[in-house]
Design a protein around this nucleic acid. Structure first.
Lengths: 153, 153
DNA sequence: TATTGTTATACTCTATAACTATA
DNA sequence: TATAGTTATAGAGTATAACAATA
């Protein structure tokens, strides 16, 4: 059944999606949806970490001590949307909030030692997943694709 | 302020996002978010049509008479998620539900004449938007990018 | 006055489960 | 029994507005 569906989608792609098949945005979206599904089936299934949480973890790990407001800025979401995420990562024992010595309103976010350990593991899983996902591309094609994508933002 | 932010993100990109900058999924997501924002600022602002609704419209236009279940299949969402969308497009006068002559449970979805007219206009707006969004790429680079993206799904 | 983190609230998108009317 | 469309409901993910504590 999955093969049949895939086959029919392939065969009717031109007629099913009309002029959209000429649009970059259309293919960008489809590829991105496929990437999320792939991530969910490997990394999220094994480690319980969504793409969003993984991104937050990496930003915290690479910018140790940053504030929640700064994290929100980097992730380009509202400050209020960060609260839940930080709670989740804290409850998982992956990060900690440290009171700032100079500003009592603010927290410094840092990885816990368990978090650092977990991130090394997750990072490997993500790297493998990313390679698997792009298995249809040669290493050169993969690099080329990344460089083209970067020119869009 | 936007320029300052963009500049600081560029300058710190390597340190802010860590190993993610090596991942295809990371760049795919950023490009896709940028594409949605661009679409929202041009097409959605001018025509009140989101990327999702536009996709539905094109699939209905290219597969006139298809059922809601078939539309859900093509869009890869649940049947129940289609109901609201079909209602919205019907209320906007862009599509109509026609009773099936052979199966009284089922509807055939079709564009209204106003819908066809509107779609021609929206289609042009989207085509312009898509070119603007990919203005940083030559025509060849754009085609290359699309062909690379297709190899991911 | 402005900023940090928070809460309350709401909106969009999507899914699951259960219903109805058919088939 | 199975399918088409629908409804009720829930869970992500995100935003806005307003608040307390602090700067």
């Amino acid at each position: 059944m999955p093969m049949t569906q895939a086959k029919s989608l392939d065969a009717e792609a031109e007629t099913s999606f009309g002029p959209m098949t000429e649009e970059l945005g259309f293919h960008l979206r489809r590829a991105q949806v496929a990437a999320f599904k792939h991530f969910a089936q490997s990394v999220t299934a094994a480690e319980g970490i969504t793409p969003g949480l993984y991104g937050m973890l990496q930003v915290i790990a690479s910018n140790s001590g940053l504030s929640q407001s700064r994290l929100a800025e980097v992730m380009e979401v509202d400050r209020s949307s960060i609260v839940k995420v930080v709670n989740q990562l804290t409850e998982k024992g992956l990060i900690k909030r440290e009171a700032s010595a100079t500003d009592r309103r603010s927290y410094h976010l840092r990885m816990t030692s368990e978090g650092k350990l977990a991130l090394r593991r997750i990072e490997d899983a993500v790297a493998r997943q990313d390679r698997e996902f792009s298995a249809g591309l040669s290493e050169d094609a993969r690099r080329l694709l990344i460089s083209l994508l970067k020119r869009l933002y």
